[in-house]
Simulated assay, not measured.
Amino acid sequence: MEIRPRRTDDLPGCVRMLAEVHEYDGYPNRWPDEPAKWLAPPNSVAAWVAEHDGRLVGHVVLTGRDEQLWVSRLFVDPSARGSKVGEALLRQARSRGVLMLDVVESSERAIALYERTGWTMVGRRDADWLMSDGTRPTERIYTSN
């Protein structure tokens, strides 16, 4: 597996992978109108992909907000789960310094990944967005220390 900076020409493959993730486990909860733009938000600082045998198997973006760097848009192709792709992408992101992330409290697999890789929960908050069913989820806030 190789972790490398995401290129513009990776976006179509990332959108296909995101569609598989969305179908498999509902992330993101609401499918974006423009998924390629969703994967490259305007406040992006850096983005990486994981590639295995020439196939994209993971994606992560760092965004800058509130004078912090935040992990965003982290997902792993369902067929590559269990092969440490998420851990490798988080390790790459952490090379940029202390990071923050938020995760919906019902995302048990993601929470397990963060806690297994040493992230510390520092709080909870109501999300500033609504789920597709109209409910406002609770998010856990983590720091990489």
Results as ranks from 00 to 15, higher is better:
14 C>A: 15
134 G>Q: 03
140 R>D: 07
78 P>W: 09
114 Y>R: 00
95 S>P: 05
22 H>F: 09
8 T>Y: 14
14 C>E: 05
27 Y>D: 03
50 A>H: 03
43 N>C: 06
37 K>T: 11
53 D>M: 04
62 L>E: 01
109 R>Q: 12
123 G>F: 10
107 S>V: 02
49 V>M: 01
94 R>P: 00
113 L>M: 10
145 N>P: 04
60 V>F: 01
7 R>C: 06
132 S>W: 04
23 E>G: 11
81 R>P: 05
91 R>S: 13
54 G>P: 02
121 M>A: 14
5 P>R: 14
56 L>D: 02
118 G>S: 00
108 E>M: 10
114 Y>C: 01
77 D>S: 15
20 E>F: 02
116 R>C: 10
138 T>P: 07
82 G>Q: 04
42 P>G: 10
120 T>A: 12
24 Y>G: 07
12 P>I: 05
57 V>W: 01
115 E>N: 09
17 M>E: 10
45 V>K: 06
106 S>D: 15
82 G>W: 06
64 G>Y: 14
6 R>P: 02
77 D>N: 13
110 A>F: 08
145 N>D: 10
88 A>L: 09
98 V>L: 08
35 P>M: 10
8 T>N: 12
120 T>P: 07
119 W>Y: 06
90 L>Q: 04
122 V>T: 13
82 G>D: 02
75 F>G: 02
64 G>S: 14
139 E>S: 12
96 R>F: 14
2 E>H: 13
93 A>P: 02
87 E>C: 09
68 Q>V: 07
106 S>K: 14
7 R>K: 12
117 T>K: 00
7 R>H: 09
29 N>R: 05
14 C>I: 12
124 R>H: 12
3 I>D: 00
8 T>S: 15
100 M>P: 04
70 W>E: 05
51 E>A: 02
49 V>Q: 00
123 G>S: 11
14 C>S: 12
71 V>G: 01
79 S>W: 14
18 L>E: 03
100 M>K: 11
21 V>M: 07
49 V>W: 00
103 V>A: 13
119 W>G: 01
69 L>C: 04
60 V>P: 00
76 V>P: 10
93 A>S: 07
41 P>M: 07
32 P>R: 04
39 L>W: 11
20 E>Y: 03
25 D>P: 05
72 S>D: 11
19 A>H: 11
38 W>D: 06
51 E>T: 02
140 R>Y: 15
138 T>D: 09
25 D>E: 14
53 D>T: 01
22 H>A: 13
11 L>A: 11
58 G>A: 04
29 N>P: 03
136 R>W: 07
101 L>W: 05
126 D>L: 15
61 V>G: 00
93 A>C: 08
36 A>W: 12
133 D>K: 03
85 V>A: 00
